[in-house]
Write a protein that binds this DNA or RNA. Structure first.
Length: 519
RNA sequence: GCGCCACUAGCUCAAUUGGCAGAGCAACUGACUCUUAAUCAGUAGGUUCGGGGUUCGAUUCCCUGGUGGCGUACCA
């Protein structure tokens, strides 16, 4: 094998070839990197220059008479009346047969095809569209509508206006872009994928409908600070920033809860905010560093009131955006028309384990949890073990909308103690398709108790827990002014949208998800 | 954070044991007056993610850095 003559000969020839190529290259090629990478762009710039000699390259406006949708819906009358339409959009393809040219033009609502004929347009104009105007450019076409032999609604172009040049080429049209490319260059994703457009329009419509829902219920939409001198209302690490004029540290909010409660103290009885929150934590399929959170608070309500509100809201969304109240998510089919299941936390565990765990000793609880495959770490409190057990035994089965209520106390530092059962709090979480959609409490409004809990948090913080909350004296002072009984609810809007548009990746519902910088 | 996998033309992807880096779309030239993934003939396009190593020879094997995907952990 080693001395194979054929092999050595081949190697020698190849080596010579490489040396030759190098020798050729060195003297001749002064600028080897200059030429190739942008050849497509250079080509387009050249065409642009030529086109610029006869038309305005970047005109200021265009008078549209019809969108693609309006042209389609009004076709019968438009064709009968031989109405001249003026239709602008982006060129998505060019199909020429020498002296004719078919050009699909896309606007926000879809694609309408345009038909260019040399005989109709004359030599110069036809040469423009055929030679100088590229896929990706924007034009407005003018002419009557007709149906082609293959029954495609088409603008028969009598004149057209150049609207803007695309120096960059569009991506290839019949393969999907990678999720990375879609997320990094959303403008291309939106240009190429109408279903992506529809998804983001749906997100917008969902949020609009949520606002309408709260307006009908006479909630007041408010805005509270994003930049906060102290962060709170959740357990999470914050982003930190600096105010130059005041020379002070400010934090991006991790929640708006503490400010909304001050409004309740002030006498605004029903408030809500759709807030961007920021948490300095890991990113994955279901977490983005900035995300949209709905929080609402209502004076004189408890968590039962919030449960009713949450159920009404989600049923409305499922009717509006699902199939008559039914929503498909992956392999699951949920029916929002039926009353949501209401399941007490401890009852669910009792049913799964066959015993009342309120009475079980912590030692027995650890044994039980391990038996069911829950991960038990040192230092976990009794309630934390219950939570682990719950997430292993119960959560995966919560496909239909289900309120899990009355949690153990340790898990819920912001909730009011349960009015009947010792050791529990008045809280609910809404689970749908196996993940948590909403979280709600009868809000704690005793300032002495609130101060104790802040001090517990402070102790955790001093012990090195970087997710613990600092003591917020301003908030405590507001609470000392007296907050009426209040129900509060928080809902992750991004995850709600994921559910309604049936995707398992948060990047599909965020126009510009956070990405690591390229290179 | 950790683990596994991926990165090749503007885009989507090939490339046998380590042996001349390819296709489709987009682009360019030409033909074609109802096309619709138009068609036909031809042309051009590459730092194979960066850096190092092994080898006569690396897209391929090893090390290292980057980015991404999936899983997992933490977490609304």
């Amino acid at each position: 094998m080693d001395g194979c003559p054929k092999k050595n000969l081949l190697a020698e020839v190849l080596r010579k070839g490489i040396v030759l190529a190098k020798n050729e290259q060195n003297p001749a090629d002064q600028n080897p990197t200059e030429e190739s990478p942008h050849r497509l762009i250079e080509m387009r710039l050249e065409k642009m220059e030529e086109l610029g000699q006869s038309v305005e390259l970047y005109p200021y406006s265009y008078d549209r008479t019809h969108t693609s949708e309006q042209a389609r819906s009004g076709e019968e009358k438009l064709v009968a009346d031989e109405t001249t339409v003026r239709y602008p959009g982006r060129i998505m393809a060019k199909r020429g047969t020498g002296k004719t040219l078919f050009v699909p033009i896309q606007d926000e609502w879809g694609i309408l095809q345009a038909y260019f004929r040399k005989d109709d347009l004359g030599e110069e104009k036809f040469a423009q569209i055929q030679k100088l105007i590229d896929i990706g450019d924007w034009i407005g076409v003018e002419g009557p509508l007709f149906r082609t032999r293959t029954d495609e609604l088409t603008v028969k172009v009598t004149d057209f206006t150049f609207l803007a040049k695309a120096i960059q080429p569009l991506p290839e049209k019949f393969h999907d872009m990678s999720l990375e490319n879609k997320s990094r260059r959303r403008h291309l994703d939106l240009a190429m994928n109408l279903e992506s457009r529809e998804r983001f329009k749906l997100r917008s419509a969902i949020i609009t409908d949520i606002r309408a829902f709260f307006a009908e219920d006479e909630f007041l939409e408010v805005e509270t600070p994003v930049l906060q001198p102290l962060y709170g209302g959740a357990t999470a690490r914050p982003f930190t920033t600096h105010h130059n004029a005041l020379d002070m540290t400010l934090y991006m909010r991790i929640a708006d809860e503490l400010y909304l409660k001050r409004l309740i103290v002030g006498g605004l009885e029903k408030v809500y905010e759709i807030a961007k929150d920021f948490r300095n934590e890991g990113m994955d399929r279901t977490h983005n560093p900035e995300f949209t959170m709905l929080e609402c608070y209502a004076a004189y309500w408890d968590y039962h009131g919030m449960m009713d509100l949450t159920e009404r809201m989600l049923r409305r969304l499922a009717v509006g955006f699902g199939d008559e109240g039914r929503v498909t998510y992956g392999e699951y089919e949920m029916d929002f028309n039926k009353p949501f299941v209401r399941l007490r936390f401890m009852d669910a565990l009792a049913e799964k384990t066959g015993q009342d765990l309120m009475q079980t000793s912590t030692e027995d609880l650890v044994v039980l949890a391990k038996k069911h495959g829950a991960e038990i770490k040192k230092g976990m409190g009794r309630d934390k073990i219950l939570d682990e057990l719950f997430s292993v035994l119960v959560e995966p089965e919560l496909i239909q909308p289900t309120f899990v209520m009355d949690h153990p106390k340790e898990l819920s530092p912001l909730a009011k103690a349960h009015r009947e059962t010792e050791g529990l709090v008045e809280r609910f979480e809404l689970f749908i398709a196996g993940f948590e959609v909403a979280n709600s409490f009868s809000e704690l409004n005793d300032p002495r108790e609130q101060r104790r809990r802040f001090e517990d948090q402070k102790a955790l913080m001093d012990a090195g827990d970087d997710e613990a909350q600092p003591i917020d004296e301003d908030f405590l002072q507001a609470m000392e002014q007296g907050m009426p009984p209040t129900g509060g609810m928080g809902m992750g809007i991004d995850r709600l949208v994921m559910l309604l548009v049936d995707t398992n990746n948060i990047r599909d519902v965020l126009l510009f998800p956070h990405m690591r910088p390229e290179q």
